[in-house]
Simulated scan of single mutants.
Amino acid sequence: MAKEILAKIKLQCPGGQATPAPPVGPALGQHGVNIGQFVKQFNDKTKDLQGVLTPVEITVYKDKTFTFILKSPPASVLLKQLAGIAKGSSEPNRQKVGQVTTQQLKEIASKKLADLNADNLDAAIKVVEGTARNMGIKVID
């Protein structure tokens, strides 16, 4: 028989650097989860993503145990890394702040394909390209 689910929690934590401080501690503490255990497991699984914002979906069960699923980092975070910028443009239609190549878009789209609402790689590339355009990042060939 499957365990009864108490809650599903979605968080974004820096890879390999999660701490019991907010937002992790309060989100898990209110459901009675062992925060230290989660932080240790999360940091162990994400040690190769040092500092990269990583979404995680935590399922808390009635007996206070938990499981979690790591998602791929947001496209905006990956685009900022590749373009070498700190943040997107405040006026993306007028002011461009960086540029990425279509090959780099393809790499990001292939990483994110499982988490995107897209059936194939071409559709995923279009999603990531739209994110880049909304951030003021120019796509070049």
Rank of each mutant, 00 (worst) to 15 (best):
residue 30 Q to P: 06
residue 32 G to Q: 08
residue 34 N to P: 06
residue 34 N to A: 10
residue 35 I to V: 12
residue 36 G to R: 08
residue 36 G to D: 11
residue 36 G to Y: 07
residue 37 Q to A: 14
residue 39 V to W: 08
residue 40 K to G: 13
residue 42 F to I: 01
residue 42 F to N: 00
residue 42 F to W: 01
residue 47 K to E: 12
residue 47 K to F: 12
residue 47 K to C: 14
residue 48 D to L: 10
residue 48 D to Y: 09
residue 48 D to V: 02
residue 49 L to V: 08
residue 52 V to I: 12
residue 54 T to R: 02
residue 55 P to E: 04
residue 55 P to T: 06
residue 56 V to E: 00
residue 57 E to K: 14
residue 57 E to G: 07
residue 58 I to G: 01
residue 61 Y to W: 07
residue 62 K to C: 11
residue 63 D to S: 06
residue 64 K to S: 06
residue 64 K to L: 04
residue 64 K to C: 11
residue 65 T to C: 07
residue 66 F to T: 04
residue 66 F to S: 04
residue 66 F to Q: 01
residue 66 F to E: 02
residue 68 F to K: 00
residue 68 F to I: 05
residue 70 L to Q: 01
residue 71 K to D: 05
residue 71 K to W: 10
residue 72 S to E: 13
residue 73 P to H: 04
residue 74 P to E: 02
residue 74 P to W: 03
residue 75 A to Q: 05
residue 76 S to P: 08
residue 76 S to T: 14
residue 78 L to T: 01
residue 80 K to R: 12
residue 81 Q to K: 13
residue 83 A to S: 02
residue 84 G to I: 06
residue 87 K to A: 10
residue 88 G to A: 07
residue 90 S to P: 00
residue 90 S to E: 14
residue 91 E to H: 15
residue 94 R to T: 13
residue 95 Q to E: 15
residue 95 Q to Y: 15
residue 96 K to T: 12
residue 96 K to L: 11
